[in-house]
């Protein structure tokens, strides 16, 4: 049997062990609280930074009487002056080479392809001027006709799931008056930020009102023509068949065959020109 002194020592040791356990547990809790607090604060700050940064990316859409819109009008006027248009085709119907541009009106890479270096899109990227060179050199001289076909890519990020069909049908409705390319070019020059909700009925309408000599009432009536929506869907199927899973994709057909450029903005105009030469 333990003596009274031994019993006291055992009790003291037990008390010390309990105190040590409590201190260890408190230190562990404090450490967990600290790391939990650090993670929560860090996540909150990152979320705020992202929210502010994402807010940068939603500038107000171009106003149709603004300086930017007037500049776009002037540019498209000069670009397309004197070139025949028919439906979704720009250029002489007899042109030996057909360049099909699979595009999405909300795609900012299409914007880079379609605009000149003097334009900057809402993402801060400048135009390449490749399409301008193509139009001024090969379409204007009758070698190439450009055909626009719709395929949904960037519009998939628009919060409005109907935006893609509405905007592409609007362009095709302009095509019924042989003004589709004017509508498309204007759109790319005044395009809003990808993933934002700028494609409203007033934006689509405003774009049509900028197209010179477009009969607005006829255009508006054509928006409910189901054939146009069927055409948009058919374009999407054609894009899949052509392997155009991203935009822009250029498919080039001529007397000597067909050449599909890799999806995305061509590296330079000479890449497009070489492909045209290879099929003509």
């Amino acid at each position: 049997m333990a003596s009274r002194k031994e019993q006291k020592e055992q009790a003291r040791a037990a008390r010390l062990a309990a105190e040590q356990n409590a201190a260890t547990s408190a230190a562990r809790t404090r450490r967990l609280q600290l790391i939990g607090g650090a993670v929560v604060i860090a996540v909150a700050i990152v979320v705020v930074l992202i929210a502010i940064s994402a807010g940068n990316n939603s500038p107000a859409p171009t106003k149709f009487d603004s300086k930017a819109a007037l500049t776009a009008d002037k540019y498209v006027d000069q670009l397309l002056a004197g070139i025949p248009e028919s439906g979704n085709t720009l250029g002489k119907p007899s042109a030996p080479v057909t360049v099909t541009f699979f595009g999405d009106l909300e795609c900012s890479a299409c914007d880079i392809f379609a605009t000149p270096p003097s334009f900057r899109n809402p993402e801060g990227e400048t135009g390449t001027g490749i399409e301008e060179q193509l139009i001024n050199q090969d379409v204007r001289n009758g070698t190439v006709k450009l055909v626009y076909r719709s395929v949904e890519t960037a519009s998939g990020d628009n919060p409005d799931p109907n935006a893609f069909n509405e905007q592409q049908v609007a362009a095709e409705a302009a095509g019924l008056q042989d003004k589709e390319w004017y509508y498309i070019e204007l759109w790319y020059d005044e395009q809003g930020a990808e993933g934002s909700d700028y494609v409203t009925s007033s934006f689509i309408d405003g774009m049509a009102k900028q197209v010179p000599e477009l009969n607005y009432a006829q255009w508006l009536a054509a928006l409910s023509d189901s054939k146009l929506l069927s055409q948009v869907n058919a374009d999407g199927s054609a894009a899949l068949a052509a392997g155009a899973t991203a935009t822009p994709t250029l498919d080039i057909q001529g007397p000597d065959g067909e050449k599909a450029l890799p999806s995305g903005v061509p590296s330079s105009f000479s890449e497009v020109q070489s492909a045209i030469n290879s099929v003509n």
Binding site: L49, I52, S53, N57, P122, E123, A193
Partner: peptide, 8 residues
């Protein structure tokens, strides 16, 4: 020079 290069 993109819009993502600045925050506020």
């Amino acid at each position: 020079s993109s819009v993502w290069s600045k925050v506020g």
